[in-house]
C-alpha cells in the first residue's frame, strides 16, 4: 500500500466506523448476527424422511427438551406419559403412543412445521421461520429448536409406543 504522507491514514477511521457499526448491530440484533443458517430439508408427502443432521438423535436428551418449559414448551399444550410433571396442558392431543400412530418422518415434519399438515394449527413451527410476524428481539432469525434438538425430540417421540 502506498504511504500517504501528511494525510491521515484512511484505514483507521474506516476500521473504527466498521467496529462501531458491528457493535451497534450486535446491540440491536445479538441473535441475528450469531444465528446459524437453517439446514435444508425435503418434505415427502406428509413426512421428512431424512434426519436434519444426518444422524439419529438421543431420546434421553429429547425427553428433557419435551418437558422443559423454556425449550420444548410441549407440555404447555400437550399432556403425555410424564408422571413427574405436575402441569400439563390440554390444548392438544396426549402424546402417549405418538410413536405408534406416526412414523419417524411424520413426527419430524410435525415438529419442524406443523403448518404444512394443517394450516390452521396452533402448534408452533419449531424449525421453520417463514411468515413469522413481530418476532421478539431475542428470538429473531432463530428457530425454536436447533436441528440437533429437533432430532433428539423425534428420537424420543418414536419411543412413545405404549397404548394410551
Amino acid at each position: 500500500m502506498p504511504k500517504h504522507g501528511s494525510r491521515p491514514p484512511p484505514v483507521k477511521s474506516t476500521a473504527d466506523a466498521l467496529s462501531a457499526m458491528a457493535l451497534a448491530l450486535l446491540a440491536i440484533y445479538p441473535r441475528q448476527v450469531m444465528a446459524e443458517a437453517l439446514r435444508p430439508y425435503e418434505v415427502v408427502g406428509d413426512a421428512i424422511p431424512e434426519s436434519l443432521t444426518g444422524v439419529r438423535g438421543d431420546p434421553a436428551r429429547g425427553r428433557a427438551i419435551v418437558v422443559d418449559r423454556q425449550k420444548g414448551l410441549c407440555l404447555l399444550c400437550h399432556a403425555g406419559p410424564f408422571p413427574e410433571q405436575r402441569f400439563q396442558g390440554n390444548l392438544a392431543p396426549d402424546l402417549t403412543g405418538a410413536g405408534t400412530r406416526w412414523s419417524e418422518g411424520q413426527l419430524r415434519l410435525k415438529i419442524v412445521d406443523s403448518r404444512r399438515l394443517n394450516p390452521a394449527t396452533i402448534m408452533p413451527p419449531y424449525y421453520n421461520m417463514d411468515g413469522l410476524v413481530r418476532v421478539g428481539r431475542n428470538w429473531q432469525d432463530k428457530p425454536v429448536l436447533s436441528a440437533e434438538q429437533v432430532e433428539d425430540v423425534v428420537a424420543f417421540l418414536t419411543t412413545l409406543t405404549e397404548t394410551p
Binding site: L91, I122, P124, L132, V135, V144
Partner: peptide
C-alpha cells in the same frame, strides 16, 4: 393476527381455546 416466534394470535388462545 398471528405473531411471535410461537406464531399465535390472541384469538387462537382466547376465542379458540
Amino acid at each position: 393476527q398471528r405473531q411471535g416466534q410461537l406464531n399465535f394470535s390472541c384469538a387462537n388462545c382466547h376465542d379458540g381455546n
